[in-house]
Design a protein around this nucleic acid. Structure first.
Length: 429
RNA sequence: GUGGGUGUAGCUCAGUUGGCAGAGCACCGCACUGUGGAUGCGGCUGUCGUGGGUUCAAGUCCCAUCACCCACCCCA
């Protein structure tokens, strides 16, 4: 046991059971994305470090990404996010594309962070963007996609909520409270922390670490508790109107404390969380003014979000939304091998069945029938076909339906229609 | 980077003031030489994470180390 080389810290082995969950998630994502008319794309997993250094603060990339030199000495990064690659892909063909662009992707990403609940070093992420429109209705479309995804998954508005804010609205409010523009970043962090600590601690923290006046603290608190503030933002009013019309508004609410990272978001921002607050954010995104700015290209606005596979899987599991049985497993039949003399007959029958479209197994070697039946049971085969000397001589087969336990013997030529009949009832939904 | 918790059979775990290494499940065999699940009987299973120390004696106490989990930090 101790001789087995360990897996890399923060990575996960996907045994068939876990792989089934991942495939199921991918299918759901593909379904919802294409339902809204989005096209799938993919970018390289390896990128030059420069691609990120241009954008997301080089400290961040150097410390929280997997970076290495290739054999020629080039600095390569295992992609920690998709947006810079997307920006490049769009910039390279900026004049040839049809706008607004509606693109989605689901693939692996790597971040060199300390693994913990809901966070691994290697994870899969759904990215979906609408590029080339600067409209509240476009922002609403993305949020509507997120809500539709939750609904399709079976998560209820009482279980998950998409919380929305707007950076311009927030900025205006902070201007009115006389916060200088240059340390917006730290104030946003303070706001972000509001819900993570008791209010008395927070006020003390704001006074001592941030040197805020009582007036500013009161102003911040008033802003953060004003759930009608969105009405002062024309953008948000249109945004919520659009969502109402789309019939998903019960999944969405205005939340003045939502900030989202500091980087490229300039307008509406949003993130989805479980209502119990047990998990970290399920997905997050927002509106940006210029996707391709740092890669060289003409200004291009857009809106998008990203969702990692780890948290959504935990949430789906908690609320019982994972399917009991996974559809990717086709019912299989097992053809027994009676002895050496019948081996060829069994292999040939198995080949015929595969030709007819049935997922078919054999044991590849003769053994006691009991053993072969037990094996069939263990691998959850739907039926066992016994082809012994008696059947071969009579030109027959014996079929046992492992679900019902029924067993019949009949001419071999009737096998395909019979199997079609007993396997027709889908055991999984 | 900081702090806390956990490492014992394939799995889940128990193990008393330091005194023979355990249970359930799983697995294998038999009852049953052409039939799975259920039952009964029998059997297999260990570097107690690793390295050192204390002791007549360490799974148990001490030190170090590694891994996993949880929280902080961060979150593109």
């Amino acid at each position: 046991m101790s001789q087995i080389i360990q897996s890399v810290k923060g990575t996960r082995d996907f045994y068939p059971e876990e792989m089934a969950v991942r495939s199921w998630l991918y299918e759901l994502i593909r379904h919802v994305s294409t339902l809204f008319g989005y096209q799938e794309y993919e970018a390289p997993f390896l990128e030059y470090l420069d691609l990120y250094a241009a954008k997301s603060g080089d400290e961040l990339v150097r410390e929280q990404s997997f970076v290495f030199q290739d054999r020629s000495g080039e600095w390569i990064t295992l992609r920690p996010e998709l947006t810079p690659s997307l920006a490049r892909m769009v910039a390279q063909k900026q004049r040839q594309l049809v706008y607004p662009l509606r693109w989605w992707s689901f693939g692996p990403f790597w971040r060199y962070e300390r693994p913990q609940k809901g966070r691994t070093r290697e994870f899969f992420q759904w990215n979906i963007d609408l590029i080339g429109q600067d409209l509240p209705e476009a922002d609403a479309e993305l949020v509507s996609i997120a809500a539709t995804f939750f609904r399709t998954l079976g998560l209820k508005p009482s279980q998950v909520q998409i919380e929305v804010n707007n950076r311009r609205l927030l900025d205006n409010q902070l201007d009115q409270l006389n916060f200088p523009k240059e340390d917006r970043g730290s104030i946003l962090r303070l706001i972000d922390r509001r819900e993570k600590m008791p209010s008395s601690d927070w006020e003390k923290y704001a006074q001592e670490d941030y040197q805020l006046t009582n007036h500013q603290i009161d102003g911040l608190l008033a802003m953060l508790s004003n759930l009608d503030l969105w009405q002062e933002s024309n953008e948000l009013v249109r945004f919520f109107d659009a969502l109402n019309a789309s019939g998903v508004s019960e999944y969405i609410r205005y939340s003045p404390a939502i900030v989202r990272g500091l980087d490229y978001y300039t307008g509406t921002v949003f993130e989805a969380r479980d209502r119990d607050g047990e998990f970290r954010a399920i997905l997050g995104g927002g509106h940006y003014d210029n996707l391709v700015a740092d890669v060289g290209g003409d200004p291009l606005p857009g809106v998008g979000f990203a969702m990692g596979d780890v948290v959504i899987s935990l949430v789906a599991k908690k609320f019982g939304c994972l399917p009991q049985k996974f559809i990717n497993q086709k019912p299989t039949v097992l053809v027994t091998i009676f002895d050496e003399s019948t081996l060829a007959d069994s292999l040939q029958l198995a080949a015929d069945l595969r030709q007819a479209g049935f997922a078919t197994l054999t044991t590849n070697e003769p053994s006691k029938l009991a053993k072969q039946f037990k094996f069939a049971d263990r691998v959850q085969a739907a039926a066992v076909i016994v082809l012994g000397p008696a059947e071969i001589e009579a030109g027959q087969v014996t079929v046992k339906d492992l679900t019902s336990g029924e067993q019949v013997t009949f001419p071999r030529t009737d096998l395909v229609p019979y199997l079609s009949k007993i396997l027709a009832t889908p055991s999984a939904s």
